[in-house]
């Protein structure tokens, strides 16, 4: 056999990448499968009645692998469906509504096969969530992520993102809601865009969200509405954008804060 030492090394190196942690009624099995975020994939084996369960422990959806899991991106949602379908992976959720992916079997002999499928599934889904699918989302997501980190650090315990202002109608979902000490809230929407059209569309969306907020029965809870403007984005700067932004800022109870002057949030 040629390269026999290499072959033996490959088999033993890969074999050495299996490890485990005991977690009450589940066994975490750390597999040799890796993600592009440079984590090794774990699967969680447990038993329910006669069935063996192999789950992802909720780690894909809760971001444990350090990757986003955004099913609002069409391409990514299709990829997830493709993998769910082909590996016959099922989905459920835990009490805090985090998605769990799993496979189950009543034949113990099938467990390794399920682990191969789940590890493959997790590795692919986590890695593919890191792909930048659409050029425009990239600019938006980058600013959105940076702004979220900045505001959540500044307003520790008072910052929320991806939540509705009015839970009854579910019409108003600004980028961020910040609770003030007076019991009221700041509604914050981010404005960015890689070109003129995208930037204007971002302003338009913010305008509608803020107008709907003022029509909400909860409007008295609004302390102020803030546009958080990415003045470093390539879509910013033209006189047309300036006019659109001025039009929005001229409306009552709207304050504009630019990223370059983000410290103004401290005084709001």
């Amino acid at each position: 056999m040629i390269f026999d030492k290499i072959y033996i090394d490959v088999v033993s190196s890969f074999g050495g990448l299996w490890s485990f942690k005991e977690r009450e009624n589940s066994l975490e099995i750390i597999t040799p499968f890796a993600t592009t975020s440079h984590k090794f994939v774990s699967v969680f084996v447990t038993q329910r009645g006669d069935d063996f369960i192999v789950s992802d422990g909720g780690w894909v959806a809760d971001g444990s692998y350090g990757s986003p899991f955004d099913r609002n991106i069409d391409c990514y949602a299709k990829i997830i469906l493709h993998y769910l379908d082909n590996f016959q992976v099922r989905e459920t959720s835990n009490l805090t509504r985090v998605s769990f992916f799993y496979k189950k079997t009543d034949k113990q002999i099938a467990v390794p096969s399920l682990i191969l499928d789940m590890a493959n599934f997790i590795s692919s889904i986590v890695s593919l969530s890191e792909v930048e699918y659409e050029v425009e989302r990239k600019t938006y997501d980058l600013f959105s992520r940076t702004a979220n980190v900045f505001l959540s650090d500044l307003f520790v315990g008072k910052f929320e993102t991806n939540v509705y202002f009015d839970l009854t109608t579910r019409h108003v979902k600004p980028n961020a809601i910040i609770k003030k000490d007076n019991g009221k809230v700041l509604l914050v929407n981010y404005i960015t865009g890689s070109n003129l059209a995208n930037f204007k569309s971002s302003i338009g969306k913010t305008t509608v969200i803020f107008e709907l907020a003022e029509k909400s029965i909860l409007k008295d809870k609004i302390d102020n509405k803030v546009t958080f403007v990415d003045d470093f984005s390539t879509g910013f700067g033209s006189s047309e954008v300036g006019a659109w932004l001025d039009n929005l800022s001229d409306k009552p109870r709207i304050k504009r804060i630019d990223w370059s002057k983000k410290e103004e949030f401290s005084n709001i």
């Binding site: 009624n25 589940s26 329910r48 422990g57 909720g58 780690w59 099922r90 959720s93 835990n94 769990f100």
Partner: peptide
């Protein structure tokens, strides 16, 4: 709660 599968309904 060290067991992520605890309380999850795997129907």
């Amino acid at each position: 709660n060290n067991d992520p599968n605890k309380g999850v309904n795997f129907a």
